[in-house]
Amino acid sequence: MSQAILPGPSAGLRIGLFGGSFNPAHSGHFHVASTAMKRLQLDWVWWIVARGNPLKTGHGDFSGRFRSAEAVADHPRMRVTDIEARLGLTYSYRTLSTLTAAAPAAKFVWLMGADNMVNFHLWGAWQGIAQMMPIAIVARPGIGPGARNSPFARRFASSRIPAAAAASLPDCDPPAWVYLPAPLDPISSTAIRQKKAGQ
């Protein structure tokens, strides 16, 4: 496995790690990333385009997904990285372990939309991810009750901090997480693919 080449400076910085298939990336993804950046007072958000998703079939062309993420992550403090593909990794736990080893002085936070929180317990080593770095969950349309009652939310209920204290999350020792209510963007990758298929 090649050495991790980081997408930007990291030492002492508050960095959100935002992984996804991004098939394709859309305004809902930007909404999650920008909401987290503002509420957590992050210095950077690194978009990690997944090499593949073990829970999905038909990931789509990697280069197309990467380009769509670059087009959507239009912010001076957001970077899109193919680090997972370059390292030949598939599972988020391995990717995040590699990043924390390569940037031990960074204050990483794992970012996800509430739609991913519902199925987070199906991810490989999901509890290990929660023990590795703080997690911020941003509300997504129609997901609220399912996310707040998910196995993750129940397992780590005592580690949740109030949304009003979200800016403190990057400084928290894991496990620690926050659920961020936010104005909702209804767009989804699935809807975009279905629309294209119907054209």
Rank of each mutant, 00 (worst) to 15 (best):
V109P: 06
G142Q: 05
W177T: 02
T98C: 12
M133V: 13
A25C: 13
P151Y: 05
P181M: 12
L87F: 10
A191G: 15
T95M: 12
R77S: 11
Y179L: 09
Y91Q: 12
P134S: 04
W177H: 02
G8K: 01
A191I: 09
D185C: 15
W46A: 02
E84M: 06
R193Y: 07
V72L: 02
P145M: 09
R160K: 14
G12E: 02
P174T: 07
D74R: 11
S97R: 13
G16W: 00
I5C: 02
I192A: 07
T81Q: 09
A182P: 03
S68Y: 03
G113N: 04
K38Q: 11
P76Q: 08
P170Y: 01
G128P: 02
L13V: 02
V178Q: 03
A85Q: 14
Q127R: 15
A176N: 06
K38S: 13
W46I: 06
A197K: 12
L55Y: 10
Q3D: 13
L55F: 10
R155N: 13
P134H: 07
G144E: 13
V118A: 05
F108N: 02
S158D: 15
A167T: 09
A71M: 02
P175E: 10
M132I: 06
G58D: 13
R67P: 01
A157G: 10
L17N: 03
G58S: 09
K196A: 14
R67G: 03
S97I: 05
R193D: 11
H121G: 05
R155Y: 12
F152S: 04
M132R: 14
A114D: 03
K196G: 09
A50S: 15
V138I: 14
K107L: 12
S68H: 01
M133N: 03
L6H: 01
I187A: 14
K196F: 07
G146S: 13
K107G: 07
P54N: 10
R193K: 11
L122P: 01
K195H: 07
H29T: 04
A191H: 12
W47Q: 05
D115Q: 04
A50Q: 01
R14C: 04
L17T: 08
A191P: 07
T98A: 15
P7S: 04
G146W: 08
T57M: 13
S158K: 14
A163S: 14
A85G: 01
P9V: 04
A36I: 01
